[in-house]
Write a protein that binds this DNA or RNA. Structure first.
Ligand SMILES: [Mn+2]
Ligand SMILES: [Mn+2]
Ligand SMILES: [Zn+2]
Ligand SMILES: [Zn+2]
Lengths: 147, 147
DNA sequence: AACAATAATGAGAATGATTATCATTCGCAA
DNA sequence: TTGCGAATGATAATCATTCTCATTATTGTT
């Protein structure tokens, strides 16, 4: 019952819907999911849950620091498990595959850019939109759900 | 009639609504405007235009390369005149003031991050969310329209 | 284990941004 | 000027997300 503890230490009651959503993110290697993705995946897995609850839980998990919200190009938010290691994202415009990367130089220069101009950086978002040149397209499980 | 030519060379007919929107971006130093901002500013200036037309024209201008669309944190798109010089943005979370910056090292490391992983970068977005530490808040004209 | 206080859920309505419809109007070339 | 295809704008529709509120579940306490 480790997830139950995860929720409690986040100040959230351990409820069935919350456990289902958390399990989905923890079990899967499909890391970047929209609310609709989560809802459909749970239904497809035989779990019952309401869409409004999915939206609520995702927002609560984000506020609790369990999930990170992203705004990739397009209208809907996507979420990933917060594993404590900050990274940025490369998104293939053809197939939607997402690859993560971290560049210490970029990170430090961002902070400096803000500081030099009298801003205290709270957060930042860096998304690289690219073409994976077909290296990864064929076997990307998200291919179908692209705009 | 230089704007008329701007439109023609972009493959767009020179119409009154398009000229009004283009003028607003070219004349103003308030660079980052949402569709609603554009609509209200034109109405406030005595110009008549439909909201649907504003949305259409903004998208057309974006596709023609006249404007650049941004997705700052929040739901609505904001647009700025494309003046040919790429830059990234720092957005104050308190007052909404936007400051532009350019860091050649960040730019080149982004391209390298993509290339190293087999991606051809098409585009990227980098937004720094910060606190302007009250240096700029008081006189930011956008202060009122924050979430 | 059953209870009560309280928070969580979920079906559906409401919202806000954006897009689609379609009858009317306009720009432009002949 | 005339005509035709493109553009406009009032309105309806759409899409993601949030809100409402009656019902249900969780948890600490008998
Ligand atoms: Mn980063
Ligand atoms: Mn940049
Ligand atoms: Zn791809
Ligand atoms: Zn400020």
């Amino acid at each position: 019952m480790s997830q139950s503890l995860d929720l409690k230490s986040a100040g959230l009651k351990s409820t069935l819907p919350r456990l289902k959503v958390l399990s989905l993110f923890e079990s899967g290697n499909e890391c970047h999911l929209s609310a609709e993705d989560v809802y459909k995946k749970l239904l497809a897995g035989g779990e019952d849950i309401g869409l409004a609850t999915v939206y609520r839980v995702l927002t609560q998990f984000e506020q609790a620091g369990l999930l990170i919200r992203h705004h990739f190009q397009g209208d809907k938010s996507v979420f990933e498990l917060n594993q404590g290691k900050h990274h940025d994202h490369i998104v293939c415009l053809q197939c939607g595959v997402v690859e993560e990367f971290y560049d210490a130089t970029i990170e430090s220069r961002q902070k400096k850019a803000a500081a030099d101009r009298g801003f205290a950086m709270h957060d930042h978002s860096l998304y690289i939109y690219a073409d994976c040149t077909k290296l990864k397209c064929p076997n990307n499980p998200f291919k179908k759900s692209l705009p």
